[in-house]
Computed example of a mutant assay.
Amino acid sequence: MGKDFIAAVKDRRTYYGISKENVVSDERIKEIVQEAVKYTPSAFNSQSARVVVLLGAEHDKLWNITKETLRKIVPAENFGATEEKMNSFGSGYGTVLFFEDQSVVQNLMQQFEAYKDNFPIWSEQSSGMLQYVVWTALETEGFGASLQHYNPLIDEAVQQTWKIPNEWKLRAQMPFGKPTAQPGEKQFQPLDERVKFFS
């Protein structure tokens, strides 16, 4: 990677304007995701993260499923904005689906009774870290991405379409592609109200 870590952290933003133009090979995308899954930490080294990468027609299929699912619940007079948003996600190159394997979480809850209430929380924290690692890694390669949460509305259709095990719980969807528009300026709250430092 050409950027140092903090530069990559600063540059990672939410991109809604993305295109189907690729910026690196599919093999490189696979490598990024696999390395992120392998090296992102998890509680008790549980490795509960599961990921599905959809490219090309499979990516298009996801956002068509999401659009048609939302069409059933969003009033027709309000659906135009929803359809536009789905089309913007679908205009990207691919989507990363993030899951957490609940069988792993349940097994840990049974093995470590004293911590059982924490394992679902730790699973979510680990998933969030993985999402951030993948997002930032894609950004360093020249992709723009955003993080979406249409679960649980699309869970059943996703499981059926891509034969996803029932134990995998969908946590987020990350459409990505070559940026076609820059995100707006980001506003920040004062750091002295958010960070305490003692020495």
Rank of each mutant, 00 (worst) to 15 (best):
G94E: 05
L62E: 00
W122H: 02
I121L: 06
F198C: 03
Y132Q: 14
Q106A: 15
F5H: 09
Q148L: 13
A7L: 13
K67C: 11
N166P: 01
M1I: 07
E139K: 15
G56N: 06
K85H: 08
W135R: 03
L54Y: 01
K30R: 14
K72A: 13
A49F: 10
L130D: 01
K30Y: 08
E193G: 07
G80H: 06
Q102D: 01
W63F: 13
V37L: 15
L108H: 10
Y132D: 10
I6K: 10
M129D: 05
A36H: 05
L54T: 00
F79R: 03
F5M: 13
V96W: 00
S103E: 11
G90F: 02
D101E: 04
G90K: 01
Q159K: 15
V104Q: 05
N22R: 14
M86F: 09
G184Q: 09
P165M: 05
V37C: 10
G144W: 00
P165T: 03
T95K: 02
T140D: 13
K186I: 05
Y15H: 11
T69I: 12
R50G: 02
R12E: 07
K67L: 10
K178V: 10
D117C: 02
F197R: 09
K30D: 13
N78F: 12
W122P: 02
